[in-house]
Design a protein around this nucleic acid. Structure first.
Lengths: 184, 184
DNA sequence: AGTTACAAACAGACCGGTTGGTATGGCGGA
DNA sequence: TCCGCCATACCAACCGGTCTGTTTGTAACT
């Protein structure tokens, strides 16, 4: 892997775990085993540019992952259940949810940086779009599908927040069980 | 209002808006028009002690507020709808949701400080408890009520996150409409 | 092929500013 | 006089960012 990708990879994980302000450049550089010079060579505009690039690659990773799951299952109900179950496994094995959530970045930066906020909004929109398409394929009306997609995005994001707070996977498990009721 | 309460009040708002790491002591002091000496007189253990005290008073404020709404309406459906509508109004007038959310603090600190994480968990638990009681009063079984309460907490928290990200109140409005389907 | 030229890639010292935290001093009331 | 309350000055540590070099790869010309 080349230097730039390495930086993005490690920085993405750190940003997800500790948020934007919570991670210092030095910490990132130390984790990458490299110097400031090389970071500022690849990201001349510094930390914020790095974050936005991280969010974009994260968007690719997440959406590809979700899309794959949603293609494998015939209906939204089954697909979303499988997706959440994957999150639970991820959480129980790794202790944190490094995969899908970036709520720390959202809530820190939403009021501080519009570019970052927009990048996050775009990411949520993309995820919600996958739900929406599947719901339309399920036969829901446009309006209904949109409503359900928003609910799904909110519930899952909130569920991850609860899991992280309680250090328990119960909230996501309950959501996995109760979500079908929502999709109707 | 005495000095200590003033510090708590202002710090709480700032913490909610910008998160824990995002707010510096100097910023808090400047907003309070006071000096470091007085802060460290009232909070000898510094910033983290202040945050935890803020979270506790926030818990009182939030729960009292929610409880009042939930007492005024006969069923969970109506009460929760009224609650979310209040959030929407709050968001549309002030631009941010200073009232109920503290997600920035959660997601930043969950992996960094156990005392803070516990304080947040306690707060969520308290809110969820109010939902739970009302659901039991509605006649739901223990298990069912618990499941719904978790879903409500997650969905509303996630909805606020989406609103902040999109700078729009639409997500919460949709949730307000769709929530009744969940409570059944 | 050998030499030159140049730019990309990286290293690390250094900068001003800010961070959370401390130590000291003063001041009004009991 | 003593003590709660607050203000000021100051601290080391760290922040993101800039700076000047040095190394390395590679293309061009003789």
């Amino acid at each position: 892997m080349d230097t730039k990708s390495l930086i993005i990879d490690i920085a993405t994980t750190l940003f997800q775990q500790k948020g934007y302000i919570g991670v210092g450049l030095n910490e990132i550089l130390k984790a990458c085993n490299m110097s400031k010079g090389s970071l500022y060579h690849h990201f001349p505009n510094g930390k914020e540019e790095l974050l936005i690039v991280c969010l974009q690659t994260l968007e690719d990773t997440i959406t590809k992952d979700i899309e794959e799951i949603f293609e494998r299952y015939p209906t939204t109900k089954e697909a979303s259940k499988a997706m959440i179950e994957k999150l639970v496994v991820n959480f129980e094995t790794e202790g944190t949810i490094t995969g899908y959530t970036f709520s720390s970045i959202v809530s820190e930066m939403a009021s501080l940086s519009d570019p970052v906020r927009n990048a996050c909004a775009h990411l949520y929109q993309k995820i919600q779009g996958i739900y929406l398409d599947k719901l339309l394929a399920d036969g829901f009306s446009k309006e209904k599908a949109h409503s359900i997609a928003v609910m799904m995005t909110a519930t899952i994001e909130g569920g991850m927040l609860l899991c992280l707070t309680q250090k328990a996977s119960e909230p996501l498990k309950i959501i996995s069980q109760a979500l079908p009721k929502l999709i109707s």
